[in-house]
Design a protein around this nucleic acid. Structure first.
Lengths: 213, 213, 213, 213
DNA sequence: CATGAATGAGAGTTCATTCAT
DNA sequence: CATGAATGAACTCTCATTCAT
């Protein structure tokens, strides 16, 4: 379905980061880049804007990172791996599908609070970035997330906790979209706590919006 | 909250299209552009790509359109105004909040089938485009859509049809995201009919995913 | 009278130069641009030609300047302000209108020698450039120059030094055109010294070409 | 002295006009083009602007003219040949150098009234256009004009009418510039008659601006 | 670590011109 | 005579990236 463009707009350079171990300056720069990528988009953000925000010249960024993509890469990896582990832990610790589902939602909103920028980038730029080999792991991560959620949904259906007439894949998408898309309007510094949203969403999701008679 | 970027990367040119009344060729070109903007993103699509797909040279596009933005503009206006009217009609014809809500969802998925590309662009590029005066109407349209949905939700709560403990704004966002975000995976030519998705989503939305005891 | 063309062919970009303080390279590039603008015209000179002459790529110019217009802007400002001050000084130091006039002519030809390119650009491109806000100061400068000269002429008429039957405005234009237009043929490196021309012109201007009987 | 650029920005096409005999429509179009070339400059005027002003599409102009240059060519030739003849006649009819000079000035200002646009183009665009073979006649015409004026000046000096200490070439340039440059500010429809200006200029030129004691 | 000058590819856009209808 | 669609070359400008200092 996706038009896969061969190789363009991304340097041919294999990959790799200049120094894996991160100095503090590095982390600062990464945070700045993440914020800009998240709010303006990866393509719409220039390395000069990142450098400006950091108070250095654009060329100087290349002392810390190989390329603009390396920054996105590092930001995304820094979010995906912990998130993967967090989901696994939820699955291990949950006793039944319903609490598992609720915990997955809660964990997701917690991530929204802590990794707002990274999630926005993952959400908005995956399609574009995944065109390039280097970012192949994005699709893999998305698939693993899907397996995580659908397993819970299927278990729930089997145990009669979730309604049997639901299409699991469709339901998964429903949930995923509703959770991750909040990144577009959720403000970690705003007055609406992630937990509050999570609880509301869990209720709508489980019981629907209609008042039972 | 949003970082508002001043003015760049979009020509200051007031607006206006070369010819408002559309020839047939024009419509073809617009469809090509819409498809590309939708699948690759506005920034990631070059006018040369659009022209290539149309079998002409990039410069020739400018016989029909003022600029790349003009194309996006025309595509978006062509979707928003009819959509607005469709929502209004739903509101006029619906007898009670619950059917109103269901109809709004159905109408939205119908739009997804007919205006897939335009909706994707509206969804993905609004944030970027709305920075520019010319696209101010995007925010206005979004606001009007919000009013439409929240009115139905509030009416429903007042009449006791929808649960009273729901935050209306949050619920609206929930619904909006779930509906529009489907644009990312929904394939109008695929085997999953928009109506099927709509019905499933309406059920989840209204009754939740949990099997009542 | 003048057809005022709205806004095109000049970027809307407010103004501003990349760095106000000038490095040495900057000055070299500016000199090259000035020479080309002067001999070929602003529109007829491409940034590639400027870059070629400087031995760099056209894109590299944008490390130093915001735009082609920025270069013209800087060239013109670098000439107008000193010129304004020079005229003021002539006025302050002159004891009578006749020597004032002669000194103004001399100062103008001296400028021709030092700022040949800038004057040519001011002369030839003002009409075109002044269409754009950014170059509004060109008209202001022209007006101030006019006031300078007409004041001297009026003083001279009042004191009976200059003939009373002369239309001051017309006479001013006469002088201005004759002085500045020399830019079209005057060659600073040629054998004709600016001073020689100035003296001849002063004589013609003051006493006419007719041999008194 | 002039940098002569080989061949660019002017079609290689030999020359020639589509139809020598001029229809009326043709004359109208030419007048429109002349006005635009004069006020905006040759390069700054697009064929589309000419066509717009004429109420047709740009491509339609090519039914009447070979190229944009052909228009300039025709406009310039239409002015130069009559002007040449007019100068010749002045020379034939004048009885002495002083009246000859005065008549040349008067004739020039009369031309300014009738051929304002053409003169402006001749004045402003000669340098640019003369780069191209096709417009070689511009230099020839300029040379002939120069010979006309300098002959009168030399005759006058020989006969003791004009001051002997004047450099003839310099004086010629002085006069030419002062006369032709008026094209920049002279408005044929304004309240200042060409004759008035001519008389003032003749007086300044002959007797100077200084009040004789 | 950072600067500052440069590269090189490609972007959007303009415009004179052509030509079938 | 004019239209409308297209060409093709050139233009100004952007931006990720490199590298000597």
């Amino acid at each position: 379905m996706d038009h896969v463009v061969t190789t363009k707009r991304l340097s041919a350079r294999g990959g790799g980061t200049r120094e894996s171990g991160g100095s503090q300056r590095r982390a600062e720069l990464l945070a700045i880049a993440a914020e800009l990528f998240a709010t303006r988009g990866f393509l719409a953000t220039t390395v000069r804007e990142i450098a400006d925000e950091a108070g250095i010249l654009s060329g100087s960024l290349y002392h810390h990172f190989d390329s603009k993509e390396s920054m996105a890469d590092e930001i995304l990896r820094g979010f995906l791996e912990p998130q993967r582990r967090a989901y696994q832990q939820v699955l291990r610790e949950a006793t039944d599908p319903r609490t598992a589902l609720a915990e997955l939602v809660r964990q997701s909103f917690r991530a929204l609070q802590d990794n707002h920028a990274a999630i926005a980038i993952f959400q908005n730029e995956s399609k574009y970035l995944a065109q390039y080999e280097r970012f192949g792991y994005l699709r893999k991560a998305a698939n693993e997330f899907e397996r995580t959620w659908t397993r819970v949904l299927q278990d729930g259906q089997r145990e009669g906790v979730f309604r049997a007439d639901l299409d699991v894949k469709l339901t998964y998408r429903f949930i995923r979209d509703m959770v991750w898309t909040s990144v577009h309007w959720y403000n970690p510094k705003g007055k609406l706590a992630a937990e509050t949203i999570a609880e509301q969403y869990i209720r709508i999701l489980c019981e629907g919006i209609v008042q039972p008679e």
